[in-house]
Amino acid sequence: MSHVVQISTQVRDAAAVRAGCVRLGLDQPVEGEVKLFSETVTGLAVQLRQWRYPVVFNTTTGETKYDNYQGHWGKQERLDEFLQAYAVEKTTIEARRKGYSVTEQSLADGSVKLSLSTGS
């Protein structure tokens, strides 16, 4: 039986963040205090391509903080791309942990279809 799931992403898994960075060819995230334009925040910082300041994830609360100055310091599409990569990686990690095999298909609209199956 097939099930379609849409995920609203909260970033809570550092391993999936690291895997998302690898998937997109980004530098590995850095844990600690990070200065955004007008605020210092603490968390796991990911430097997205062509973003002035990193995106910082608090993996305890799932909260995401960033300052892209309404797109002038970084395009929202780069963050969306990372969140999609994170969601794919997190889903894959959890599915494999529960014994499922995972296949991935990139769709024409930019979305990703994951298929999970059991060994039986």
Rank of each mutant, 00 (worst) to 15 (best):
V4L: 13
V5D: 04
S8W: 08
S8K: 11
T9S: 14
V11Y: 10
V11P: 11
D13T: 13
D13N: 15
A14H: 10
A14V: 15
A16D: 04
V17S: 10
R18A: 15
A19T: 02
G20M: 06
C21I: 01
V22Q: 09
V22H: 07
R23H: 03
L24C: 02
L24P: 05
G25T: 05
G25H: 04
Q28G: 07
P29M: 05
V30L: 13
E31P: 08
G32C: 02
G32V: 00
E33I: 01
L36H: 01
S38W: 05
S38I: 00
T40F: 03
T42R: 14
G43V: 06
G43S: 07
A45S: 14
A45I: 03
V46L: 08
L48N: 07
P54T: 01
V55Y: 02
F57R: 09
N58W: 01
T60N: 11
T61D: 00
G62M: 04
G62C: 06
E63W: 10
T64D: 03
Y66N: 13
D67F: 13
Y69M: 11
Y69F: 14
Q70V: 08
Q70H: 12
G71S: 08
W73H: 10
K75P: 04
K75H: 13
E77V: 12
R78C: 05
R78Y: 11
L79N: 03
L79S: 02
E81A: 13
E81S: 10
F82N: 07
A85W: 01
A85M: 02
Y86R: 08
A87L: 00
A87M: 08
V88I: 15
V88Y: 03
V88H: 06
E89Q: 14
T91R: 10
T92E: 12
I93K: 14
E94M: 11
E94L: 14
A95L: 11
R97Q: 15
R97D: 13
R97T: 15
K98P: 02
K98L: 15
G99I: 05
Y100F: 15
Y100W: 08
S101C: 04
V102M: 03
V102K: 06
V102P: 05
T103K: 12
E104N: 02
E104A: 03
E104W: 01
Q105S: 08
L107W: 00
D109M: 03
G110V: 01
G110H: 02
S111P: 02
S111E: 03
K113W: 08
K113E: 13
K113C: 08
